[in-house]
Each structure stands twice: as structure tokens, then as C-alpha cells.
Design a protein around this nucleic acid. Structure first.
Lengths: 115, 115
DNA sequence: AAAATACACCTATGAATCTTAGGTATAAAA
DNA sequence: TTTTATACCTAAGATTCATAGGTGTATTTT
């Protein structure tokens, strides 16, 4: 996804958070939503996204449901119960990461907690 | 480094930023400084650090200087001119990453710019 | 009508980054 | 004397992602 090296490791967090807000989404929709939320700065490639979705499903964090729309197949993903728990955990990790990076790059500055 | 998946890709940024503030540092010192700045939450492993330092040196961003201290060898790293330029670029990337993650996980919230 | 783009899924290969697990050696502390 | 701290290093494997494909339908553009 995109050319930003920092993005490594953040894809699961992004997927889980979007599904926390949207009940169910399909793969292509996720790529578009991320593009639109970040003004095109994050581009999730399908080569990264689909394996990530399959892995989250295999771990029991997501469940799937196929739908036919105009002779096209859509595979909708939703959070399972343990998926919902995992979202909080991933967001806590993200907050900790940002705080710690702030301590390194902004030494002497009070950390903020709005992420 | 540590168990946080988000850290993937942030090591170069950390190294370059620490060297921007310290003139010169050696490898072991970097691991200790990061541990102390993050209250032990980021643990940079030597298996990650040394290859990263060697790569940054090979790319011309860092220069080295050997020193003897009590019969022990220390290899000090400093930013080259292009290393100094690269710091700004990496920090800009970090800010962009955080802002975009905020747009995803805190939709409807004003981004902050203190990183 | 034909060609290109958008929609929608997928996988395989390789690159990059990290963890784990070693190895070498000196100095200090238990 | 053994462990911990200091200080450097590498090799093998895991994980994650980008690139580059493949399949097929629907819509838009030419």
C-alpha cells in the first residue's frame, strides 16, 4: 500500500477500524474508502488487501457473506465478536506507537492522545 | 524491534532523528536511548539495528568513525549532508502517516500537527 | 461497435524489514 | 566465578507488502 514505509503493519488496524464503523464492507469498497479518507495518499493494493482479509478471517476476527449484485459477486466482511475485541487492542497499539514516536521526534513536548 | 507491528518501517526515521539531535551516536547507545525515551516500550533489537545502520551508511546518509574506549571498540555514526536532508523528509512522511491514520480512526476529528 | 475504464474477485513472486538466535570479546557486578 | 552489561556482528526464517499477473462483468468513452 502506497510508497510510505511507515504503513507496514497498519493494514490490519485500518481494516478492523473501518469494519467497526460500517457493519459490513467488501474488499474493493475498503480500498476506495481508504483512498477517499486520505485524499489519495494511502493506496491499498489488492495484493496486500485480499491476503490480509483472508488471514483475519482465518484467525476468526472476520466473517464473510457472499452477495450477487448485477451478476457480480461481492464478498462482504464483518467483525466477529473477537474481531470487535481486537479493534480496541489494535487502536491501543496505534495510540502507543504514536505516543512513543512523539517522545522520540518531539522530545520535551507533551504527548497528545487524540488518536 | 518490540512486538508492535506498527514499528515496521520506522527504524530509519528513529535513527536519523536521534542523530539529528546528537551529532554522533554508536549502535548500542541508540538502543538504550530509544528504550529510555519510550519507557521500555520500544526495544530495538541489534539484529534490526546494525543492518539498518549499514544500509544508511551504504546509501550515503551516515558516516562512521571508530573510537577506542577502555579496550573496547565503538563505531560512531553521524549524519552526512544528505542524511540531514533525509531527516526532514522522513519526519514529513511520519507526519503524513499519522495524519492519515487519524483520518481513518478518528473520522470527523480535526487532525493535529504536533508530530 | 470497439476499446478503455471501472468494478470485483484472486494468487504468485520477490523485495524489504524485522525477529530470533546465534557468534566474538571486554568490563563490571553478583 | 558466573552473570550482566557493554559493544560489535551475521545468518535464517517470518511477516508484510508491492508488483504483476489472471478472470470476468458493467459502464463509459471513443
Amino acid at each position: 500500500m502506497s510508497s510510505n514505509a511507515l504503513l507496514k503493519g497498519s493494514l490490519q488496524t485500518i481494516i478492523l477500524k473501518l469494519l467497526e464503523e460500517n457493519e459490513k464492507m467488501y474488499g474493493y469498497e475498503i480500498t476506495q474508502r481508504v483512498k477517499e479518507l486520505t485524499a489519495g495518499e494511502f493506496k491499498i493494493t489488492e495484493g496486500a488487501l485480499y491476503p490480509a482479509l483472508h488471514k483475519l478471517e482465518a484467525e476468526g476476527l472476520l466473517s464473510t457473506e457472499i452477495q450477487q449484485v448485477d451478476n457480480r459477486v461481492r464478498k462482504y466482511y464483518s467483525l466477529t465478536r473477537s474481531g470487535k475485541t481486537e479493534v480496541s487492542s489494535k487502536l491501543a497499539e496505534l495510540r502507543a506507537f504514536v505516543e512513543n514516536m512523539q517522545r522520540i521526534v518531539n522530545p520535551g513536548l507533551k504527548p497528545d492522545f487524540n488518536i
